[in-house]
Design a protein around this nucleic acid. Structure first.
Lengths: 190, 190
DNA sequence: GTCTATACAGTGATAGAC
DNA sequence: GTCTATCACTGTATAGAC
C-alpha cells in the first residue's frame, strides 16, 4: 500500500459524489465514502464536521469572499454597489467543475431533508456575512439586511442560470444582471 | 374513561422545554423527555419526526395561515398589501405563552447548530409558501420572492420586538410597522 | 387510533494503540 | 497524526397491547 497520499479532503468529496450518485445520499454511509477514498471513517470526520458537510465544502470560503468584497468596495459606493462588487469577487472563483457538479448537487440536496436544511443555513449565513459587512460600512437597518438578501438571491439565481447555459454569459455577468433585476423589482414594490 | 392521558403532544413539548432549560438541548435525550411526560421514546417519535421538531411544533401551521392570508386578500390588492393581510392573519394566532417562551427558545436555538439549521429551513419554507401564494395571484418573478422575503423579515423582526416589549403594541401592529419600514428601505435602495 | 416493546443500522464522540 | 475499538444516542421498522 502506498504511503500517505495528499489531498485527502478533495478525494473524500469526489468519493462521496460518486457513491451518492450511485446509491443516493441516505443509503451511502461515511464508512463507504472513506473506504472508496482509501481512508478510514475516523479520518473522514477529521476533515468534515459531519456527513452533510462533505457536500458543502465548496461553499466554505464564499462568506469570506463576499464580506471582503463588501469591505473592499469604494468608500462612496452605495450599498447595492458594494454588493455588486462582492458578487464580482465571489463569482470569479467558480470553476467549470463546480458548474458541472452544480445541477447534480442541487438534485441530491432537494430530495433529502437534512441536506436541504444545511443548504438553507448556509444561505442564511451568507446573508448574515454580507449584512454584517455592510453595517461595518455604516449602512443602517433594515437596509443592510435587505441589500444582503438581494445579493444572496442574485447569487443563487445567477448560479442556476449559469449551470443551465454553459455557453452563455459568465457567472459574474449573470450575477450583476440578476442583482439589477431584483433592484428594479424592489423599486417597483413601493 | 380514556385508557391513556390526552394531549400527549403538548405534554411532550412542555417536558422538552423544561428539561432543555435545565440541562441544555444536547444533554437532553429523547428518552428523558418521554419519561418526564409519562410516555415512552417510541411515542415521542410518533408525535414528532425527530428530536428537533419538538421545539418547532408551534411553527407548524404558520405556512398555511400565511398562504391562506395571501389567497384571501382582495383581488385588487398589491403584492405588499396581500403580504400585510397575511401577516395580520398569522400574527393573530400567537398567544401570551408563545410570547413568554419566545426568548428562551431563541436562546436555545442560537447556541445549537442543528437547531439553527432547522430554524433557517423553517424560515425559508415560510418564504416559499408566501411566494407560491403570490405567484398564484399572478405576481411575477422576482417580485413574488422579494415581497415574500420582506414579509418573513417583518414577521420575525416584529416577533423579537413583541417579546421584548410585553406592554407595547400588539404583534399584528408591530408586523405592519416592520413591513412598512422594510418597504421604505426597499424604495430607498434604488 | 394510540401507545408500548424490542431490535437494528448508522452517526458522531472518545480514549488509547502504534 | 492516523487508526482501532467502543460507546450513547438518534431514528426506523415491526411486532403487538389496550
Amino acid at each position: 500500500m502506498a504511503r500517505w497520499e495528499p489531498d485527502a479532503g478533495p478525494r473524500l468529496v469526489r468519493a462521496a459524489l460518486d457513491l451518492i450518485g450511485e446509491q443516493g445520499y441516505a443509503a451511502t454511509t461515511v464508512a463507504q465514502i472513506a473506504e472508496r477514498a482509501g481512508l478510514t471513517r475516523t479520518t473522514f470526520f477529521r476533515h468534515f464536521a459531519d456527513k452533510r458537510e462533505v457536500l458543502f465544502a465548496g461553499q466554505e470560503v464564499l462568506g469570506r469572499l463576499l464580506a471582503d468584497g463588501i469591505a473592499g468596495a469604494p468608500a462612496d459606493a452605495t450599498p447595492l454597489a458594494a454588493v455588486a462588487a462582492a458578487l464580482d469577487a465571489a463569482t470569479a472563483v467558480f470553476t467549470a467543475e463546480q458548474r458541472e457538479y452544480g445541477p447534480r448537487l442541487h438534485a441530491v440536496i432537494a430530495e433529502n431533508g437534512e441536506l436541504a436544511e444545511r443548504a438553507a443555513f448556509k444561505r442564511a449565513s451568507l446573508r448574515a456575512a454580507i449584512a454584517d459587512a455592510l453595517r461595518a460600512r455604516g449602512v443602517g437597518d433594515p437596509g443592510a439586511g435587505l441589500a444582503a438578501g438581494l445579493g444572496v438571491d442574485a447569487f443563487y439565481r445567477a448560479f442556476e442560470r449559469w449551470c443551465d447555459l454553459p455557453a452563455g454569459p459568465t457567472y459574474p455577468e449573470l450575477a450583476r444582471e440578476e442583482l439589477a433585476a431584483l433592484r428594479a423589482a424592489a423599486a417597483a414594490l413601493g
